[in-house]
Simulated assay, not measured.
Amino acid sequence: MPHSDEQAVLDRIRQGLVYTESEASFQASQRRTDLIFEYNHTPPSEVDKRGSLLVAILGSVGERAVLLPPFHAGFGSNVYIGDDFFGNVNLTFVDDVDIRIGDGVMIAPSVTLTTTGHPVHPARRVDYARFSEPIVIEDKVWIGSNAVVLPGVRIGYGSVIGAGSVVSRDVPPMVVAVGTPCRVLRPITDDDLTARLT
């Protein structure tokens, strides 16, 4: 059971309120940085070792999950990945709070999923002050290269996020969404069953 001061900080974090590095320092034991380093330096032929490391790093890992190294995470332990996940190289999880990824999700190279932001006024950024809100990526989502998903975003079932997009608000299910800021371009329809491009 957390100390009452720690519980108060956890409550603020859960509410999306500002907290500092010093206040959250009690969470340091949940960081898996050494294991992430080891994973990123494990030879490709050592598939079983990589699998064991990934289970030790992440909050949970589904069946047939693939995460190509290198990847980066602030904690690792706050990332939950479903079945048939594919994460390409240079995936970054800023997982101060939960990042929950469903089944059949594909993420292209150099994508950032960040649950954390900082106050705009510099006086409020002392001691790395920040706020954190969870990210949810539903089943069958595809996120294109160099996309950034910001705190508190939910991406709906089956949607496609275009390369280079900055996703700052929720994306509904079964749409193609692109741009900075990311906006819905069009629905995904049965016509897409025979088309190659978006």
Rank of each mutant, 00 (worst) to 15 (best):
T189S: 07
V141C: 00
S165G: 02
V175Y: 01
F86W: 15
D48N: 12
Q7E: 14
A65T: 13
G144Y: 10
A123Y: 07
V184N: 03
F37C: 07
N78G: 06
T92A: 05
T194W: 08
F93Q: 05
P2T: 13
V9H: 01
L58W: 10
V136E: 10
V9A: 01
T92G: 00
G76V: 08
H3A: 06
A163R: 06
E21L: 13
V176A: 00
A73H: 05
E6I: 13
A24V: 11
T33N: 09
V153M: 02
V149Q: 02
A28L: 14
I81H: 01
P2I: 12
I188C: 00
I143N: 01
V66F: 09
S60F: 04
G179Q: 08
L91V: 15
G152S: 00
D127V: 09
D5R: 14
A195E: 14
V176N: 01
G62L: 07
S159N: 03
F93N: 03
N90M: 12
S25R: 12
F93R: 01
S110I: 02
P69M: 10
R50L: 09
H3D: 15
P69D: 03
A129D: 04
L113Q: 03
S145T: 15
H3P: 04
D84V: 11
I143D: 02
K140R: 15
P43F: 06
D98K: 15
G74I: 10
V97K: 01
E133C: 13
G51I: 11
G59D: 05
P119T: 09
G156R: 05
R125I: 09
S165M: 03
V167G: 00
G74R: 08
D48G: 08
D191H: 06
T116W: 07
V178K: 03
Q30T: 15
Y80K: 01
D11Y: 14
S77N: 12
P69K: 06
G87N: 05
